[in-house]
Design a protein around this nucleic acid. Structure first.
Lengths: 154, 154
DNA sequence: CTGACTGCAAAATCTTTGCAAAGAC
DNA sequence: GTCTTTGCAAAGATTTTGCAGTCAG
């Protein structure tokens, strides 16, 4: 995993090159996603920052604006959940896809060489210029399956 | 592709078994998705029905409620687009995945045996009980690529 | 008849925008 | 200083809900 200091430098560089400003709020959001690997809604990020930095006021609008900015810059990526918003995660990890448990909502990441390769082939076959892809496997994770069993046996 | 009459029977059966009622509105929405293969937002469906059946009033709420019902019944499936809602499509086709052009928004469907198989293997490996999956390849379709070329050359 | 369904409008979510004040460079 | 960013609140956009009337079975 990339070092936080290196990440910060990269972030500052992107900021500078775009003629934008480097602010505390932006850093905190990047830092939060870096430190807490996982998938968060804008609101979760906002709430967490409010708790961690009670003396700072960060508006939810800023979180949205920053996440959009960070996504454009490639520092974070998002994953959609139906109509009910997006979740964001730190984006400079190796590309991966997601398994989503529809019972507890937990998201597990995976990477599979065969799938990656096949996707390129599919896109190439029809002259589609692939820039990105997402894959979600939806189902029930092992611990939720166990829970169900337990409940049935009791 | 399944016959419309057969589909209707199946739909009526599902309705009856759930103790629900068979209404004109529900039929029209099923019919619309059957006749117009493609991917539609609830609003698009609502607008289209308003035009096709000017003498019927179908509330947007009914479209939402019906789509949820139909999705639960497996007659339609949905594909999410970030925070900006879902699109629905007729769901009794053979399973397939999507290529989404980020310029014109056109959705192309594909089915790939290798990917399907690999997904099962990934889920099995970690004891994840897969019930569904979605895969989106995002990029630029051939005609949008051509447009860009044309624009650059002119 | 009874209970489900509908349309409407209001409410609830989630996200974006306008604006004056504050902050980065 | 200049121009961007921020927080707030208001506005938008999308989806859901409450309710009285309507309709299917």
């Amino acid at each position: 995993m990339i070092d936080y200091d290196v990440l910060l430098e990269q972030f500052k560089l992107i900021i500078k090159e775009s003629g934008l400003k480097y602010t505390k709020q932006r850093e905190l959001i990047v830092k939060y996603l870096y430190d807490n690997h996982g998938h968060f809604t804008p609101e979760e990020i906002n709430d967490a920052l409010k708790i961690t930095y009670p003396d700072m006021t960060i508006g939810i609008a800023t979180v949205y604006r920053t996440l959009t900015l960070l996504e454009d810059a490639g520092l974070v990526t998002s994953i959609s959940f139906g109509a009910q918003g997006k979740k964001y995660e730190f984006g400079l990890k190796k590309h991966h896809d997601h398994l989503v448990c529809k019972q507890c909502g937990i998201i597990t990441e995976f990477y599979d060489e065969v799938i990656e390769k096949q996707q390129h082939e599919i896109a190439n076959k029809i002259n589609f210029k692939m820039t990105d892809h997402t894959m979600k496997i939806i189902g029930v994770c092992q611990s939720c399956q166990n829970l169900t069993l337990t409940r049935n046996n009791s």
